[in-house]
Amino acid sequence: MKRHVAWAAMAVTFAASAAIAETAPMDVKFTDVGAVAESLTGQPGDATKGAEVAATKSLGNCVACHKVSALDASFQGNVGPELNGAADRWDESQLRGIVVDAKHTFEGTVMPAMYKTGPFIRPGDGYTGKAAPADLPPILNAQQVEDVVAFLMTLKEE
């Protein structure tokens, strides 16, 4: 009995500390070249899930603008550069910075910030055209960002 309680208490503490360890969008620290050194969740990303986030319209929708040969998605766009070999060009912290908010790396870029909750001009509620709720979530949550970064780290050509 005692033992069970102890385990349960430990699980609760663990869950709580994991939640605390997650960096909120407002608190992300960028280096002066736009990189984000620390994982947003303290948990490793899952590259397979990241691939899905990148290819799914309602999630990252990276293929709207980027060609990524590793992804099985039709009609990949070309507003951004191809991501093949991205991990040869950038390290993990830089890739995390680009996914969180690429404007710190590329001034004025059209690439949307995936982990940002404001300020925005006339933010909407998804694609409904209606006003956003007060607690507008970022496009991707912290773990999805880490998953996409893990996926990008698999894009090596050299």
Partner: peptide
């Protein structure tokens, strides 16, 4: 030239800087 919404895109982002390119299909 105002960058609206959570995607922070202006008319110019798509129709001045990127005409000729593809956004998905």
């Amino acid at each position: 030239y105002t960058r609206y919404g959570q995607l922070e895109l202006s008319c110019a982002s798509c129709h001045e800087e990127n005409y000729g390119n593809y956004i998905r299909a």
